[in-house]
């Protein structure tokens, strides 16, 4: 177990470094964008005087390195600061949105991961059968359509007929059942979008192993095909599958802004887009850190899990 702990610590240290670089890049990129928060808040009605006054109030007249340093020291003390635009603490703004985003990601993953594993295993088992072809074709067409198109089709079929709401309105007082009901369509859309990738990786990884001598041995022993796949092939195919699942989970957290817009889902993506267009750098930075952390942590988890599934890696000195 010692090797794994060392690996986790090393990777966490690297992760912190990654986050630092990400924050620097994001800050630099928003600096390069034309205009700033003061001018975009005032929009068409900005006059040089009011923009200057607003800049003074918000501290935007300070040089960029000074503003970055202030932000960095704040974050290191656990203080994300206040949104420049609304003066609300960023931590408050983010917590509800982050909760919504994670909820939707987990909901979609809870459907998509088992579904794609089962479909993948079955497709590998009945390779080149009708089932295999239909599952492949279905998953690939779902992924080939743009997300918003899938979403509109689902709204047309399931919302306009009154089965599910087309718009997601969440309130803290909702029961879990209600929440699952109102967020069903966005979750289903995301499921359709991510299933193909995971399913095809599962299928490919297993089929790849089916040609190995030890599988042939198992087959010669007279084991049933299902048992061969589940007991002998799948454990060895887990490493690539876990990696693909981690990648898709990260996507579910960071890349769903289109689905959020179509279903009016109050998640982090929309907040990020709003904040970028208004140049509310403090909020952009905080969200970028969350997204980067999600990638770092999920990749770390994937690496740890694939190491654990491979005894050879565990004993390496």
């Amino acid at each position: 177990m010692h090797a794994v702990v060392v690996m986790i610590l090393q990777r966490l240290a690297l992760g912190v470094l990654t986050l630092f670089v990400v924050s620097l890049v994001i800050f630099g990129a928003t600096e390069l964008l034309p205009g700033d928060l003061a001018s975009s808040l005032l929009g068409q009605s900005a006059t040089p005087e009011t923009v200057a006054a607003l800049r003074r109030q918000m501290g935007l007249d300070l040089p960029a390195p000074v503003r970055y340093w202030d932000w960095l020291t704040g974050v290191l003390q656990g203080d994300f600061g206040v949104s420049l635009a609304t003066r609300r603490p960023i931590a408050d703004m983010l917590s509800a949105r982050l909760g919504n985003t994670v909820f939707l990601a987990l909901y979609a993953a809870a459907i998509a991961v088992p579904l794609s594993l089962i479909l993948g295993v079955l497709a590998a088992l009945w390779r080149n059968s009708i089932f295999d072809r239909v599952a492949n074709a279905g998953a690939l067409s779902a992924i080939s359509f743009p997300e918003f198109f899938v979403a509109y089709i689902l709204i047309f079929l399931l919302a306009q007929s009154g089965y599910f709401p087309s718009m997601t309105r969440l309130s803290p007082a909702m029961s879990l059942g209600d929440k699952l009901y109102v967020t069903f369509l966005p979750a289903l859309t995301l499921t359709l979008v991510v299933t193909a990738h995971m399913m095809r990786m599962t299928r490919a990884a297993i089929i790849n192993l089916m040609a190995s001598p030890y599988i042939e041995m198992a087959r010669l022993k007279g084991l049933s095909p299902l048992r061969i796949v589940l007991r002998h092939a799948l454990p060895n195919a887990l490493a690539p599958i876990i990696n693909v699942i981690a990648l898709n989970l990260a996507y579910l957290i960071t890349g769903v802004v289109v689905v959020e817009v179509v279903f009016v889902y109050p998640g982090l993506g929309q907040l990020m887009v709003d904040s970028v267009s208004k140049r509310d750098i403090a909020v952009v930075q905080a969200i970028a850190l969350i997204f980067a952390s999600a990638y770092v942590l999920l990749n770390l988890t994937a690496d740890v899990l694939s190491t654990l599934t491979n005894p050879r890696l565990m004993r390496r000195k």
């Binding site: 709204i155 919302a159 306009q160 009154g162 087309s166 718009m167 817009v261 179509v262 279903f263 009016v264």
Partner: peptide, 13 residues
């Protein structure tokens, strides 16, 4: 409701 199709859907449903 920023998306115009989502607005229409919300009204129709």
């Amino acid at each position: 409701i920023l998306d115009s199709a989502a607005r229409l859907n919300a009204l129709m449903t």
